[in-house]
C-alpha cells in the first residue's frame, strides 16, 4: 500500500466539493476506467471567476484527494489563474504523492482545464493560457 501524506489522507477521507453541478457552465471529463481513474469536473463561472467547482471521481485514494484539492484550489480564481494550476502544484499542496500516483495529479489539472475549455467553446471566447497546450495533454491516457 502506498504511503500517503496526512494531507492526502485528510482530503481523501473528507473530500471537498464532491458532486455534480446541474446547470454547470463547463464540464471536463478525463481518464477512463481501463486506466484506472476517471474524473469529471463541473464549473460554474460568474464574471470571469470560478464561482463553484465540483467533481466526481472513480479511482484510488490519491485520485480522490487530488480532485478534492484541485477543486479547492480553483474556487474563487479567475479562469486565467485557474489555468495556471499545474500537477506539481497540486502534488505540492497535498504534501507529496507516491511516485506511481503522480499521474493522478495530472488528471486533476487536466480535468479542470478541460472544463474551462468546454466553457470557452460554449461561449465562443478565448482565454489566455488555454491555447498554449494541445488537446493531447488532456486525455490522461498515459496512466
Amino acid at each position: 500500500m502506498p504511503v500517503y501524506s496526512e494531507k492526502v489522507m485528510e482530503y481523501f477521507m473528507n473530500p471537498r466539493n464532491v458532486g455534480e453541478i446541474k446547470d454547470a457552465d463547463g464540464i471536463g471529463e478525463v481518464g477512463n476506467p481501463v486506466c484506472g481513474d476517471m474524473m469529471t469536473f463541473y464549473i460554474k463561472v460568474k464574471g470571469n471567476r470560478l464561482e463553484d467547482v465540483k467533481f466526481q471521481t472513480f479511482g484510488c485514494g490519491a485520485a480522490i484527494a487530488v480532485s478534492s484539492m484541485v477543486s479547492e484550489m480553483a474556487i474563487g480564481k479567475t479562469l486565467e489563474e485557474a489555468l495556471t494550476i499545474t500537477p506539481s502544484m497540486v502534488a505540492q499542496e497535498l504534501e507529496g504523492l507516491p511516485k506511481n500516483k503522480f499521474h493522478c495529479s495530472n488528471l486533476g489539472a487536466q480535468a479542470l482545464r478541460k472544463a474551462i475549455r468546454d466553457y470557452a467553446n460554449k461561449k465562443g471566447i478565448k482565454i489566455k493560457g488555454l491555447e498554449e497546450k494541445g488537446e493531447e495533454d488532456e486525455e490522461g491516457e498515459e496512466s
Binding site: M1, F12, D37, F58, G59, C60, G61, A63
Partner: peptide
C-alpha cells in the same frame, strides 16, 4: 461495481 478497490481498502483500514 462503480468504485475502486484501493479507496475501499483504505476506508476499511480506517
Amino acid at each position: 461495481e462503480f468504485i475502486e478497490g484501493e479507496a475501499m481498502l483504505m476506508l476499511l483500514n480506517s
